[in-house]
Design a protein around this nucleic acid. Sequence first.
DNA 1: TATAAGAGTTTTGTATACAATCCTGACAAC
DNA 2: GTTGTCAGGATTGTATACAAAACTCTTATA
Lengths: 222, 222
Amino acid sequence: MTVDNAVTTIADKVSRQLAEEIISGVISPGQKLEEQNLAEKFSVSRSPIRDALRQLSGTGLVDIKPNHSVTVVDLKVDQLHDMYEALGELEALCAKFCAQRMTTVERKQLEELHQRSAIAVRKKSKKTYADLNDQFHDMLHQGSHNKSLHSISGELRRRLAPFRRPTFFRGTKRLKDSWDEHDNVVNAVLAADAKRAHAEMGRHLVNSSLNVISYIEETRDS
Amino acid sequence: MTVDNAVTTIADKVSRQLAEEIISGVISPGQKLEEQNLAEKFSVSRSPIRDALRQLSGTGLVDIKPNHSVTVVDLKVDQLHDMYEALGELEALCAKFCAQRMTTVERKQLEELHQRSAIAVRKKSKKTYADLNDQFHDMLHQGSHNKSLHSISGELRRRLAPFRRPTFFRGTKRLKDSWDEHDNVVNAVLAADAKRAHAEMGRHLVNSSLNVISYIEETRDS
DNA sequence: TATAAGAGTTTTGTATACAATCCTGACAAC
DNA sequence: GTTGTCAGGATTGTATACAAAACTCTTATA
């Protein structure tokens, strides 16, 4: 594979950091990203900032309209619905392939990660669980042994991240429910039961979706 | 929906035209896209060219490496394999949803388009069939009634286009075979048989994949 | 009060200049 | 013949200047 960084440009660094900040919620959906502001924030000129913003637009994290400031993508409920349905199908597919294709080592790693997130649930540490949850899903993308599926699923997941993150920080019930759903997926994958892995993963994403969308509808300014 | 163009920037026009030229094969995979060259070709400065290239990179049609010329993505056989597997699953899914969700009007339009492409097959007009084929698949993406699935499938399909196009222009046997496979999909969709639509679409893409990959392996300079 | 128009400001779009990096080809050393 | 190195040219990365479009806020008007 390519070495992760080595030599890189300012535009790349800016692009990565902005993506990170959008995904982690430091910058919120709908917020304007003005070039001059960012240039001052990063102490560079507008050129690398523009490069970074154009590159970011391809990830679906920001929206570019001619002659307007770039904005962080703000999804409507019906868009969230469609994206979650698509992601559900993609990840169910990944889970199916995982059941069929994961190596022994990968299965072991999945199990181990799943056990670590059990601890996070017990400790009710939401931040830790959210991080382990991301790793869990990424591991299932990777276990599909299909790089295209892996990257498509990962990207769609990142686009939804700004809307999913906050929901982890409500109660702790969703933590436990989420872990139980993961548990069903893990058991099916370890048992090499492709059909069940597919079904359980689909169920998990339907629940995630309901959780996120109900949160959005509750907290929407009326 | 947004009005298609109205007011637009040079960068957008350049980006669209380059995408068009890559997809249609005017520019070939692996080819370098030098900024100064493009600037002269479009009679503009390097600024909008850079903007266009960064935006394009998000579509997966070009590859950007720091301090190197942007290149048209050149896919290896194993990447093609993964992408076709992913696309096969995505389009099978679309076909399934089409069977369940397409309106009466949409079903009528699908049938009508399918009949038009029968004429193209009979006339052995490859260019026309290739265009109608693109429309056919796009109609099935749209018929899924899921905008996310629609756009993801479309984008993946466009990334494969530079490698699929040439294969239409070999013999005429693939034209007939392709149409027959479409016919199976159409019949299943019109019969609202979701399971069969899924299966037939999957089969169609496996065949497309085999066709494209065997072509690549044959014409590879040894 | 509501609306429209317009000047001034802000922000993006494009052009250009310069810096940094990469590529090429000649030539020397082994 | 192969490898290494170094100069010169070509290409990308970044900064800056100006043009064009959008926004803001005041003021005129019904």
